[in-house]
């Protein structure tokens, strides 16, 4: 008359059957994710081996093996775009993180208006990247831009600088905008991390005679290791993926001087309608992202991953 006399060590299949109702809860989430992520991954990899017609009539595509990959990797533009991407990603990440960490440290104590200040610093992060891009295009404007005018007024140059239409300044100008937009993300991440540093440790170190810098180095930094890793990874990923600011401000120009992988892929796909080559390009980017994703999950989960589910 017993309820269930399951085997002592039920196999995976038996466990899945026993927990079948549990899957209902995650089914909608998984369904959407599979449709909007699983399928596209498959399709991107698949298309990367084909030559696709500009009409996008996929029935007419031609299998070309690894031609698309070879073409990308051997093209001269690829090297330039890759260098731009590295510069863009590395500098954006570095400056956003440095400013964010500095802001977090400066905000990590109680004072009147702290919440408001944090809110103000976060505004660039929450507004639309399109709006941000236009605001900065206007600031950088070659004739009426306020930055150029300020540079002239303060005697740095005698003519307004053409920030965005100059191969030497376009990429750095974009990086400034990007840092403006995302440094506060690093700020709140690090601020949250700082709040996990036990106050007692600081007191103890103060009693032991440690100065501001020593306390930062020996107490704060070790506590921030995990958050730092996650923050830097998220910034790297966001920067490798950023499209809106470069696209709206320069669209890769002038003369490809601000072209990065993402904008190059978009141009290939939606301006030159070469989905096959663009897919191969995506797969390359994808491999880079996945290796970072591995570190992301590891950083995010720490020891948690080892606990049996």
């Amino acid at each position: 008359m017993s309820v269930s006399t399951a085997a002592r060590e039920p196999n995976v299949f038996a466990r899945i059957v026993r927990h079948r109702a549990d899957y209902l809860y995650i089914a909608p989430a998984l369904g959407v994710m599979l449709l909007v992520i699983g399928y596209p991954i498959y399709d991107t990899i698949y298309l990367s081996f084909f030559n696709t017609p500009p009409s996008l009539a996929m029935a007419d595509k031609i299998f070309v093996g690894t031609d698309n990959y070879v073409r990308i990797l051997t093209s001269e533009a690829f090297l330039d775009v890759t260098i731009n991407t590295l510069i863009w990603t590395a500098f954006s990440t570095f400056f956003a993180f440095a400013l964010g960490l500095g802001a977090a440290l400066a905000l990590d104590r109680q004072f009147v208006g702290r919440g408001l200040l944090r809110g103000i610093l976060l505004i660039p992060y929450v507004i639309s990247a399109v709006a941000a891009a236009y605001i900065w295009r206007w600031l950088y404007h070659s004739d009426f831009g306020v930055i150029g005018a300020l540079a002239v007024a303060s005697g740095i140059t005698d003519r307004p600088i053409n920030f965005l239409d100059n191969v030497d300044t376009s990429l750095p100008s974009l990086i400034v905008v990007n840092v403006w937009k995302e440094f506060s993300f690093a700020m709140i991440m690090m601020l949250a991390g700082l709040q996990t540093v036990p106050e007692q440790l600081h007191r103890a170190a103060q009693v032991d005679g440690a100065g501001v810098f020593q306390r930062f180095w020996h107490i704060t930094m070790p506590h921030l290791k995990g958050v730092t890793l996650v923050t830097v990874l998220l910034l790297l990923v966001a920067n490798l993926n950023s499209f809106t600011i470069p696209w709206i401000m320069t669209a890769g120009g002038p003369a490809g001087s601000s072209d990065i992988w993402i904008t190059a892929i978009y141009q290939l796909a939606f301006e030159r309608i070469r989905f096959g080559v663009a897919s191969a390009y995506s797969v390359i980017l994808f491999v880079v992202m996945m290796s970072m994703g591995y570190f992301y999950v590891r950083a995010l989960t720490g020891k948690d991953e080892a606990t049996p589910g």
């Binding site: 008359m1 017993s2 309820v3 269930s4 006399t5 399951a6």
Partner: peptide
């Protein structure tokens, strides 16, 4: 939670499941 084997009675009612 549900037992693997055996019966539970509350009053004269078997409450398994």
């Amino acid at each position: 939670i549900e037992q693997t084997a055996g019966d539970i009675f509350i009053g004269d009612r078997r409450v398994n499941g």
